[in-house]
Design a protein around this nucleic acid. Structure first.
Lengths: 196, 196
DNA sequence: ATTCGATTATACAGACCTGTATAGTGGTAT
DNA sequence: ATACCACTATACAGGTCTGTATAATCGAAT
């Protein structure tokens, strides 16, 4: 459960990253220019480029920053359920519910970023970062399922992941209300019927 | 199962829409300019604007067009499973599998478009179109579940929707292989255990 | 035959984009 | 005290964006 130190950043850089995080998430990456970010952060564009080098690098920093905050939030929720078992797997869904209420009415920043970049496999440095985050969560699901005594933890982790991703997307799409709760309830049913 | 006539479009407009569909989906909406679209379609920008009025309107047409093609594909798959039952619900996943193989390595165009527009509730005309498409599919799931004798078809439809959306996103993210197959297998297990 | 619709070709306006250049300020650490 | 660092302020280069204007061409329908 590595939760890395988030940022020995200069004050200006920190404000840039905070402003960029909010704007990128709210409006989309391509829709926000560096001038807008600098103005919102109360710094000049020079500071932005001195600290981050390019918009692309700032986007990567944004995704890393947001993921680090999410992992922190998740770690705190997991710490409250120390005993191995289904509840520990379900804590991920609970974390997503509380996180979503405060930080995410538009779904997952990684999923959204993916939508804005061309076919990943080429050079774009954002795709590997997103892939890394998703594999990390898949592995966490797998580990917690294994702890919980699930018969096939790898297979169960994929199912958990599908429910999690589907719910996050549905939060942003507003197809129906409380998708994360529906996902958690179904996840519980699956865990309890296949690892009692 | 309304499958509307797709397009009494002029030849130029048709080529614009085809080019826009491919480019928007492949590279993202904001990343593609109207000049690029016109050039790819082999028409002038004037034709594009004469036919569609604005880029925003073209984006809506793109989403409608792609959805219409998807519904056509889906209808063809459903026609092969006339008997009410689980297999008819699962036909949606089968349709998504074959569709994805030919048309969608980057996931769902509606989900991706959602990521590129600001908080839906405001004026943007793309959000209602996306919401409409998703509710349509949710209702279809509900109807087919009801036909299949599911105990609570509305609740089951939400679960199917979560699996479907999660799998589509995972196709684009490449978190693990064959997510739609995993989703279909789980969907089958759910349908058979709750509506035998 | 002539009008009308769809189209080509080209040019341009005005805004916004990323990124850089130049010059100067204020605090901090050695 | 001086070298360094983060930062401000301003201007601009070069490109791309959406959208419009003008003029001409071609085919089909009435």
């Amino acid at each position: 459960m590595d939760v890395p130190d988030l940022a020995p950043l200069t004050p200006g850089a920190r404000r840039v990253l905070d402003a960029a995080s909010e704007l990128f998430y709210e409006r989309g990456i391509h829709a926000v220019g560096v001038d807008t970010i600098a103005a919102a952060a109360g710094v000049t564009k020079k500071t932005l480029y001195d600290r981050f080098g390019s918009k692309e690098a700032l986007v990567v920093a944004y995704l890393q920053h947001r993921d680090a905050r999410w992992r922190e939030h998740l770690a705190a929720q997991l710490a409250r359920v120390p005993e191995p078992g289904s509840d520990r797997v379900l804590a991920i869904f609970d974390a997503a519910i509380s996180w979503s209420g405060e930080n995410g009415l538009k779904g997952c920043s990684a999923i959204n970023a993916r939508a804005e970049i061309g076919d990943g496999h080429d050079g774009h440095p954002v795709f590997p970062e997103i892939a890394r985050q998703k594999v990390w969560l898949l592995d966490l699901f797998g580990e917690l399922c294994r702890e919980a005594g699930t018969i096939d933890p790898r297979a169960m982790a994929k199912r958990m992941m599908l429910l999690h991703e589907g719910a996050l997307v549905t939060v942003g799409l507003e197809t129906f209300a409380h998708p994360l709760e529906v996902a958690r309830d179904l996840a519980r049913a699956l865990l309890e019927s296949l690892a009692p």
